[in-house]
Design a binder for these strands. Structure first.
Length: 156
DNA sequence: GCCAACGTTGGC
DNA sequence: GCCAACGTTGGC
């Protein structure tokens, strides 16, 4: 099993929003970065665990645990001229953007903030917490995932 | 709202 | 294929 960190702006789509969706699942649409797409298209497997991270909010941090819930498939928003994610260079014959469905998996007792993660032992190499990192999907090691989930289960 | 970081675009 | 200009992300 692989582990991931996926960012979302809670004003746009939060962990609570995911829990409230029918089936508690949602297509992870709108990714328009090739590295992030390649992770979804080439490396994600159903059942992979996800740290659901809230960005562009105060404080930013990991809000809950999700999982990969589908095989990769073309991002339909790329074909929709009315979508803000519309990409005229993507077509159904040769779709440029692929996504997976993401599903709620478990709650944390509290948010694990970016600030806290930066101070945690064992997370020094985590790409998601490096300064200047903008990639919305990054791989996480099993140990990093476990440390963050454990921190989030501790009552503060 | 500022701005550093960095991915993408397009002229050459 | 280089690289300057531009746009976006996201912490602060």
């Amino acid at each position: 099993m692989n582990y991931w960190l996926m960012k979302s702006e809670p004003d746009v789509f939060s962990f609570e929003d995911l829990k409230a969706r029918p089936g508690q699942r949602e297509p992870w649409d709108g990714v328009r970065n090739y590295q992030a797409r390649n992770f979804m298209r080439d490396e994600m497997k159903i059942g992979d665990r996800i740290l659901f991270y809230h960005s562009n909010t105060n404080p930013p941090g990991v809000a809950g645990i999700a999982e990969v819930a589908s095989e990769p498939y073309p991002d339909p928003t790329a074909f929709d001229p009315k979508s803000k994610y519309f990409d005229p260079k993507s077509d159904a014959e040769k779709p440029r953007w692929m996504l997976v469905d993401v599903k709620y998996q478990a709650d944390l007792n509290r948010l694990v903030s970016l600030e806290e993660m930066k101070g945690m032992a064992g997370l020094e190499d985590m790409r998601a917490i490096q300064r200047g990192n903008r990639l919305s999907i990054t791989p996480v090691t099993k140990q990093e995932f476990a440390a963050i989930q454990k921190a989030g289960m501790r009552q503060s």
